[in-house]
Amino acid sequence: MTTPLDQLSVLLLLSAMGLYAVAFVAFALDLARRSSEAQAMADEAASRSAGATASAAVSEVRGGVATLVAAPPSVDGPPRSNRRTAARVALAVLTVGWVLHLGADVLRGIAAARVPWANMYEFSMTGTLIIVGIYLLALTRVDLRFLGAVITGLVLVLLGIATVGFRVAVSPLPPALQSYWLVIHVFVAILGTAFFTLSGAVSAVQLVQARRERVLAAGRTADRVKLLATVPTSTRLENIAYRVAIVGFILWTFTLIAGAIWANHAWGRYWGWDTKEVWTFIIWVIYAGYLHARATRGWRGNGSGWLNLIGYGAVLFNFGVVNVFFHGLHAYSGLSS
């Protein structure tokens, strides 16, 4: 049964996806610009390499603040960033798209008269909403515009799969899901997933950046991916990914615990190695390994970056494959088998 509200929700979601696609193109254009900018910067630097240090010192004095010695590479971006028209357009479009997405989500909730995350379609819709929301929020604190294309691209793919593969009409909650733990457990899971997504995206860029740094360090000057010159160093990216993953890990721990409490209410045991419980556990252990890898010599850097991506792979697997194809108690995709 498709109610008018649900239809409106679909319409809003499709419009949001359209805008996300526009934002994706604009972010991609921005990345292309970065490439030529990096080239120009390199040329400039070559032509007046002698004056460069002096001008930097001057700008610091003019800033009127006591300076940092050995200042870390800034994520606030090079001074040109304000001229990044494509990125600004992308951000504006992304924000409008997010508002429509929010509308779609709220309307779906109203149409179903409950929280909009009771099946996979709704989980995807709310999950991507939170991903974009957290990305927009993070942008107010750190310049992560270089991630825009990755984030919008990923969200578009996820929403595409959700609307084509997971879409189900509004239906009442089965008795097993009629619990306030649905609100808590699933929402915390969505939040955790969103933070893991952001962290994984940063780690992906980190790995590419680290590769470029290795090539440059080896003395080969051919810097093919020039746009990376405008992106923070791999160490800096690793720190960002780590901090975002910490939040994700804490939320995931709560997901696990809230799930155990709910399982104890609904199924009579807090832990029973149901397929979904197994994968939630696997994800928790992988991310625990990731946090440890940061403190292990030989694993810092690339090793931890890969672990983060493996962890995120397990998150996607847990959602996309375990829900649909594995036999278990968490049968809530709403898809008929």
Partner: peptide
């Protein structure tokens, strides 16, 4: 630490067949 990390990863992998 390295062993702890490897054991954590081994635990994650060992949990897979049960699913």
């Amino acid at each position: 630490m390295r062993t702890a990390l490897l054991l954590l990863l081994a635990l994650a992998i060992a949990a897979v067949p049960g699913s």
